[in-house]
C-alpha cells in the first residue's frame, strides 16, 4: 500500500491505496465520487475525465499514486455549492447549457464531456463549431449525435464571456 494525499473537489484526502489503483477507481470506490464514470478500458471514451491540477485527464489512465499531492476536480465539485435552494442556481455555465440545449440524454458521458469542455473553454473561450468538435474528440457520446453538445458548449462559452445568450 502507498500513502496518498489528494485534494478532491476542495477536500483533502489521506488514504492508503494499492499502487495499481486507477485514479477513477480511487475516486469512485474510496472517496465515493461516483459522479465520474467508467465507459471503456482503452482510454477512448472520456467518460472518466476529471481535472488533474487544472487540466483534463482520463482518470482511468492515471494511477492514483501519480496524483499524490495533486488537486483533482470532478463533476461533483463543478457547481458552486453555496447557493442552496434553487438547485440550478450554482451550476457552472456548462451544466446549465447542457440542460437548456438538451446536450445529454442518458447522461453517462456527460460528466466527462462537461469536464473536457470546461478545460477546452479555459484554453479557447470562443471556439468555433469545428474547434469544439475537435476539442472533444476524446469523448464519446452514443445518444445525442453531438449536435446539442456542440451547441451547449458554445452557449456556455458565450455566457462565460459575458455575452448575451440567445435562445
Amino acid at each position: 500500500m502507498t500513502k496518498l494525499n489528494i485534494t478532491v473537489d476542495g477536500e483533502v484526502h489521506d488514504d492508503d491505496v494499492e499502487p495499481r489503483t486507477l485514479l477513477v477507481h480511487y475516486l469512485r470506490d474510496v472517496v465515493g465520487k461516483t459522479g465520474t464514470n467508467v465507459g471503456c478500458d482503452t482510454s477512448n471514451c472520456g467518460a472518466c475525465t476529471v481535472h488533474l491540477d487544472g487540466r483534463s485527464v482520463k482518470s482511468c489512465t492515471v494511477l492514483a499514486v501519480q496524483a499524490d499531492g495533486a488537486t483533482v476536480d470532478t463533476i461533483e465539485g463543478l457547481a458552486d455549492p453555496s447557493t442552496n435552494g434553487d438547485p440550478t442556481a450554482g451550476w457552472h455555465p456548462l451544466q446549465k447549457a447542457f440542460h437548456t440545449e438538451h446536450g445529454l440524454q442518458c447522461g453517462y458521458c456527460t460528466p466527462g464531456m462537461i469536464m473536457a469542455a470546461a478545460d477546452l473553454l479555459k484554453e479557447n473561450p470562443d471556439p468555433s463549431e469545428d474547434e469544439v468538435r475537435h476539442g472533444l474528440e476524446g469523448n464519446l457520446c452514443r445518444c445525442t449525435g453531438y449536435v446539442n453538445i456542440v451547441k451547449a458548449v458554445r452557449t456556455a462559452a458565450a455566457e462565460m464571456r459575458g455575452e448575451e445568450v440567445s435562445a
Binding site: K33, G35, T36, L78, P87, H99, L104, G107, I114
Partner: peptide, 12 residues
C-alpha cells in the same frame, strides 16, 4: 431528468 446527471449525483 437532467439535474442529477449534469452534477454527478447519479445512481448508476
Amino acid at each position: 431528468e437532467d439535474a442529477h446527471l449534469v452534477t454527478g449525483r447519479t445512481s448508476w
